[in-house]
Design a protein around this nucleic acid. Structure first.
Length: 575
DNA sequence: GCCGTTTTCGGCCCGACTGTTTTCAGTCG
């Protein structure tokens, strides 16, 4: 079984969780967590590094000891140390840490005093009112646990970005009417444009804190108030999304924005850097050692500046090397929505789309595109009414006619061809040669073993007619796992054959994901950002693809649909 | 367990909020 970086980071993280519950030294626990984060963030395949005998301690936060453990995991698939800890600390206890209000100390106490090993046992203990008898706990803690168990607050409860947006925007609109509030900004993973959001962090400047907090908790969508302090208030919305509001002073706006935007790892790295410069960074500003007067804090730019750094776009703040790049002045000039000139993956009523070629073209023109490609499904995708070769030929004629008749937007002839189980394509080459753009995608047999799945797609990528590999991993966020696939091999093949990898902008897909965007860029592979729209409205999903591309450090040059239609066709070697 | 313009030991990011406490521990972001 091939070991992925994620397998390694999961084992390290689990080890940290169980060690922490056991009462191990907190800094030792932190080391395992930091190493897990590092491993998760590097784009090279660690298993191969181990095979090649490379020095793993060059990875940040990985020392001799953890390097050995990584080698053990790669070679044996497990970690003996973790297996031994599991005998002392039941594995499921780590799930208790995911409940809000429960940390390692309380988990330990619940385990030692009440013999609790599972969530079910915790539930029973709460029902029997046993938890309130423990030292340091009481009725309120017990009630909180009861609520949390009901809410099942684990990682699964993150919210798709596009859904969070639907709740965030009305709340921002609501605050516009609040006289006490001046500046309003959403921080957190929302500002970093992560594909899923844990909660909404809202920052507000203003002097009358009580008025702002009253206004906030009176929002019609607020279900319950979790906590209310002198500067911070947290609530749940009816949609179950948690919203934290912090009220801050103008002179601390930049410091607070930086702090509340995160990521946590980015913030820790910055504060660590500050300490090296005898500075203390907190959410109020930057303070020289032993002084109360801040030397920066009003804007994010000056916060970074006093640390000798250039401002870093929020999407990059994941501690994946952006601080080093900022220091060296090598931050990328991230792509923006305005850079895109066309949308080259969409469907029409010829297959499973809701709108005609003409309707899609006019809507895209209105949206601001110079060109689009119509890329309907082909025959194997029968549920979508996929086209036979002769039907596709007819559609291509129709596209040509529409292109002549509709001014100010060019309509390219495309198709989304299905990659069959054996890696061949479902239409013959002679029709594919007539296309301007040929996207090839997997729609069936998504559960093949990794070796077979990888071989299948690599074979398709050797067909000279393929221009773009559509939604490469096949994932649907929170609904369907990515296919078992050696993505590094796919990316290497794309580099070798000059094949473009798609960043599907559908907010449920975002496929390639941010890490694979980084990996593809490193290997010189070009990408496209496309909506895969099945209706006029979905043409507006383009922004989500841009967010993901920005999280993957991509620039306009990395994306082929920033080119004009002529340049694009030339690049693809078409017409 | 990691790390080093403080370099092989002695540190390790920082403050708000809650609940159970009479001064603080635990948790969170």
């Amino acid at each position: 079984m091939p070991i992925h970086n994620n397998d390694i980071s999961e084992i390290l993280r689990k080890t940290a969780d169980l060690l922490e519950i056991e009462g191990a030294d907190e800094f030792r626990v932190r080391s395992y967590r930091q190493a897990a984060n590092s491993v998760e963030n590097i784009t090279d395949n660690l298993a191969e590094k181990v095979k090649d005998g490379e020095d793993l301690t060059k990875i940040s936060d990985v020392g001799e000891s953890i390097a050995d453990k990584i080698k053990e995991i790669v070679n044996t698939g497990s970690l003996q140390q973790l297996e031994e800890i599991k005998e002392r600390v039941p594995e499921e206890l780590s799930k208790l840490l995911n409940l809000e209000g429960i940390g390692p100390e309380r988990t330990k106490e619940l385990h030692e005093e009440l013999g609790i090993e599972t969530l079910d046992e915790l539930k029973k203990a709460v029902e029997n009112k046993e938890v309130r008898e423990l030292e340091g706990m009481g009725k309120k803690v017990e009630d909180k646990i009861s609520q949390e168990l009901q809410r099942k607050r684990d990682q699964e409860t993150r919210t798709l970005f596009a859904r969070a947006e639907e709740y965030a925007e009305p709340l921002l609109d609501y605050f516009i009417e609040c006289d006490a509030a001046q500046k309003i900004e959403i921080g957190g993973s929302y500002r970093r444009r992560k594909e899923t959001i844990g909660d909404l962090d809202i920052l507000i400047t203003g002097s009358d804190v009580d008025a702002i907090m009253d206004y906030f908790t009176n929002f019609e969508d607020v279900q319950d108030v979790i906590k209310r302090g002198e500067s911070r208030t947290s609530v749940h919305l009816r949609s179950d999304i948690r919203v934290d509001v912090a009220v801050i002073k103008d002179e601390s706006y930049g410091a607070a924005l930086l702090y509340f935007t995160g990521s946590k790892e980015h913030g820790i790295h910055l504060r660590d850097r500050a300490l090296d410069m005898d500075l203390k960074v907190n959410e109020y500003g930057v303070f020289p050692e032993d002084e109360d007067e801040s030397i920066a804090g009003e804007t994010e730019e000056e916060m970074y500046e006093v640390l000798n750094l250039k401002w870093i776009p929020p999407e990059m703040r994941e501690d994946r090397g952006e601080i080093e790049a900022s220091e060296k002045g090598t931050l990328p000039n991230l792509i923006t929505l305005d850079d895109l000139k066309g949308d080259i993956h969409m469907h029409t009523t010829h297959t499973d789309g809701d709108a005609s070629i003409r309707e899609m073209a006019k809507a895209a023109k209105e949206y601001g595109h110079d060109y689009i490609a119509i890329t309907d499904h082909t025959k194997r995708v029968s549920v979508a009414g996929g086209l036979e070769a002769d039907e596709l030929a007819e559609e291509l004629d129709e596209i040509e006619k529409a292109d002549e008749k509709i001014d100010d937007i060019r309509i390219l002839k495309g198709a989304e061809v299905d990659i069959l189980k054996d890696g061949s394509l479902d239409l013959p080459d002679d029709i594919l040669e007539k296309l301007d753009i040929c996207i090839c995608s997997v729609h069936y047999h998504t559960d093949l073993p990794e070796d077979e799945q990888t071989k299948r797609i690599l074979k398709a990528m050797d067909n000279p007619n393929i221009d773009i590999l559509g939604h490469p991993s096949g994932r649907l966020i929170q609904e369907r796992e990515p296919m078992a696939l050696d993505m590094e091999k796919i990316i290497d093949k794309a580099a070798e054959n000059d094949i473009v990898l798609e960043i599907n902008a559908n907010p449920h897909r975002l496929d390639l994901d941010d890490r694979h965007c980084m990996m593809a860029k490193d290997k010189g592979v070009k990408m496209s950002i496309s909506t895969d729209a099945h209706s006029v409205g979905e043409l507006h999903n383009m922004k989500y693809g841009v967010y993901q591309a920005r999280r993957g450090w991509l620039e306009a040059d990395d994306i082929i649909n920033t080119l004009s239609a002529d340049e694009l066709l030339k690049m693809l070697g078409r017409n």
